[in-house]
Structures are given as structure tokens and as C-alpha cells.
């Protein structure tokens, strides 16, 4: 039998792989966005595992909304990315320094 702990540890590992991806991929925003997607899938796996083991469907409905928001986020993010590439001719994180933060 697979315990809830197995699912939670799996999603924790995937979450941290996405975290490492954000750390190491400083020069490509596309991969950075993909790492955020990976993190979201890990979190969704957590929600579904708890929903299954506690017998409550609210977790699955929450995942549904997370998927919706993530799809909207990707659409706008990639639109901003094409705009950035048109203006700066690069998609490196290093060129995004207009705000001098």
C-alpha cells in the first residue's frame, strides 16, 4: 500500500528540484517559468493526495483553480517574454535591470 507520506515526500522532492532550477537558470526566463510550472504540479500533487486520503473533494477543486490561474500566468508571462525579447533582444535575467532594484 502507498501511504500519504510517499506522495508528500515525492512532491517535496519535485518542489525542491524546481527550486534548484530557479537558482541555477539565471540566464533563461523560459526555463525559469517552466520551473515554476514544476513547482505548481508538485503542490497540486500534495492537494490531490490529501483530498484522496481525507475523502474530501475540495482539494481537487482547488487544484482545478490552480491549473486555471497557472494557464493564465503562462499566457501573460510568455507575452511579456516576447515583448522583452523584441525590446532587449535577449531573454536573460541579467538584462532586466531597468528598475535598478
Amino acid at each position: 500500500m502507498i501511504s500519504l507520506s510517499d506522495y508528500l515526500i515525492l512532491s517535496a522532492v519535485i518542489f525542491c528540484i524546481g527550486l534548484v532550477g530557479i537558482f541555477v537558470n539565471r540566464t533563461n526566463i523560459i526555463i525559469l517559468l517552466m520551473c515554476v510550472e514544476l513547482i505548481l504540479v508538485a503542490v497540486n500533487t500534495n492537494f490531490i493526495a490529501f483530498s484522496h486520503f481525507l475523502g474530501n473533494e475540495a482539494g481537487q477543486i482547488f487544484v482545478f483553480f490552480i491549473l486555471t490561474v497557472a494557464a493564465a500566468e503562462v499566457a501573460i508571462g510568455l507575452a511579456i517574454l516576447t515583448l522583452l525579447f523584441r525590446v532587449k533582444d535577449s531573454i536573460s535575467v541579467d538584462v532586466i535591470n531597468s528598475l535598478k532594484g
Binding site: L10, I14, I17, V20, I31, L38
Partner: peptide
């Protein structure tokens, strides 16, 4: 899942 995530990163 883990192998594909690592390869992606």
C-alpha cells in the same frame, strides 16, 4: 517524474 524534472532543470 524525478528523472524528467532533473533533466529539465
Amino acid at each position: 517524474f524525478v528523472v524528467a524534472s532533473l533533466a529539465m532543470v
